[in-house]
Design a protein around this nucleic acid. Structure first.
Lengths: 356, 356
DNA sequence: CTGAAAGCGCTTACAG
DNA sequence: CTGAAAGCGCTTACAG
């Protein structure tokens, strides 16, 4: 492969000048830059990332950590992040924790990330105190997405989960429901993942505001997945008289609920209304009413916050020219979370209760 | 950060020995290795990937290229690949092409990949002749997944798309359908993506084997997505008497078809049966009959083929110890594709036609 | 089994 | 605006 010396020789300049010209540094004359670019083009030169990183101390790489890339929210976030990083000349190193403790340890507790990436985007990854400590020690800039994940000093992009659940519940109240159940993620989870706790709070707040005391027998915990929704709903139905409506903590649980209701011979929404939170790709196909949250926007914004602390998005004149990421020491205080708006989307899964 | 010299000093050996011990090379005495590991542990040493890559010539990184990580098949494949790579000590660089031509160019036509990764996994990425040429010139080992993507010398993992569509169609024929429509991806796509062509062939073969000539007015092309399925079905219905059954080229198109049928006041399966291909996560929720294909297995197998050419899966005794990937020059001929089995899954979206 | 030394291919002060 | 030289932190023959 051609190296920087080859380009330097062909262009008749030093390797230092080639390096500067290719990275778009201002201290190169236009004529020289032209010659260097032409030579690089002619030789099909591409800088060696390893050498560049070792010499320059920056990796041009961002780690993106998600629980499960196959879930709607995380896939959508990663897609948006990837596009922004790609356009900014950054590489994206993907870590899909997938519930594997060993992977968690390797990603969060090894110095390996420190020398591997310039910055981290942590999506809805529950953190123990020790995890937070380890991440802080990395002294890398980072951004978290979702309320469940907080690292001191890192900006956070998220929605207002309490409000989202409140709106979902109020929609059912407005339709005339009073026996409203709630199915949600498992708080026995040893990890401090708070998203479903916030959503439960919103559900309860809306009920109380309507003068209805939350009924514990209508609040079932299960996993935050389709199967979790199915199981929670089955459990709910086993407890006796079914509710007339269900608030699911996410669309995937809502889909599971729909399945369980259908299997039990109950019609949605005639017998039971169901509302989720997310606006999953398939919510429309299922006719699912939901609270839409902007997943791609959260990813995009997180990436932007990470790379453009000054609002300046550097153009990448050549592969290898990369803007510096937000410095870890820019600000020691944890920034105020950026909260994106949610929106009620009414489809066919919610209707007035029959007695109404 | 601690460097290799720090470890060497603490362990009382040379940096060369530290390097060997940490990577698990056999030419180190047990006692020395113990001391080195203890020193590394004590200093929380992690090797610098940049330095290691520059000196060693290997990156310990695999590029995974997918069209859209948010689609079921690609997300599932990436998740499986990520787990295997992670366990093997490899980093995963994600490229989500997302229909962006600029990204295609950068990924496929820059030498940048060459110096950035040791190997490539290309998932269902349509390739022009120039793309194939560029990839071949990289002289990197690679594996493709899905029939639409072929690179000379690279193994391919896929299903038999013709057979899958044939089985789907035969299922409908067995139920007594004869007016069977087909909705599929767009062949006007300038890229040589053949998956939907193969599936159309299977559809036609099954009809012909049943003595039915394929009716072009029952074969509609659209995009390979939910919306594509909706549009194709709407178009189909606009053409006149509806079919009694639809074979969709993938589950996402089938879901779109179900939406369109519902919107047109037609019931599934009473008025129209629908079958897909994939066994998407949500196929069960929708009661969609389909031909299941093993997505995670294809990803896992591709990763394994790439990293374990000799069936030897090297353990990674320390982060940084990484088995050598399959050499590009191991075999100049293109290996026989590995074809994984598919399976008919009958749910509620298919039934005998009403007249039957 | 171990070490001294060269070298991987860049970037970055420093000097001009 | 440009160049000579040092240095980034490892791995790899080579020698013993």
């Amino acid at each position: 492969m051609t190296r920087i010396d080859d380009v330097a020789r062909l262009a008749g300049v030093s390797t230092a000048t080639v390096s500067r010209a290719l990275r778009g540094l201002p201290t190169v004359s236009a004529a020289t830059r032209r010659r260097v670019l032409a030579a690089a083009e002619q030789l099909q030169y591409a800088v060696s990332p390893s050498a560049s990183r070792l010499a320059g101390g920056r990796t041009g790489t961002v780690a993106v950590v998600v629980p499960r890339i196959t879930r709607w929210f995380f896939g959508t976030v990663v897609e948006a992040v990837e596009e922004f990083l790609q356009d900014s000349g950054y590489d994206l190193l993907l870590y899909n924790l997938g519930g594997r403790e060993q992977t968690r340890q390797r990603v969060l507790h090894t110095a390996s990330l420190h020398k591997r990436v310039d910055a981290i985007i942590l999506v809805a990854t529950p953190l123990r105190a020790a995890d937070v400590h380890a991440l802080t020690k990395l002294e890398l800039p980072g951004v978290t997405i979702s309320s469940g994940t907080k690292v001191p000093g890192w900006p956070c992009v998220r929605i207002d989960d309490v409000a989202a659940a409140r709106t979902a519940t109020r929609h059912l109240l407005d339709l005339g429901h009073t026996r409203i159940a709630h199915i949600s993620g498992d708080p026995d989870d040893e990890l401090a993942f708070t998203t479903h706790l916030d959503r439960r709070r919103g559900y309860q707040e809306a009920l109380r505001a309507a003068g209805i005391g939350p009924d514990p027998s209508l609040d079932v915990e299960s996993r935050f997945t389709i199967d979790g929704g199915t199981q929670a709903t089955a459990e709910l139905l086993a407890r006796g008289e079914p509710p007339t409506a269900i608030v699911a903590a996410c669309d995937e649980m809502a889909m599971g609920a729909i399945t369980a209701l259908r299997d039990a011979g109950l019609r949605v929404p005639q017998d039971v209304s169901v509302i989720g939170i997310d606006d999953h790709d398939l919510a429309g196909v299922l006719g699912l009413s939901t609270i839409a949250q902007p997943a791609a926007e959260q990813g995009l914004l997180a990436a932007r916050i990470l790379l453009d602390p000054l609002g300046v998005r550097a153009a990448a004149p050549h592969p290898g020219a990369v803007p510096a990421p937000r410095g870890a020491d820019t600000d020691d205080r944890t920034p105020t979370p950026v909260i994106l708006p949610t929106r009620l989307v009414v489809r066919e899964s919610t209707a007035p209760p029959r007695a109404h």
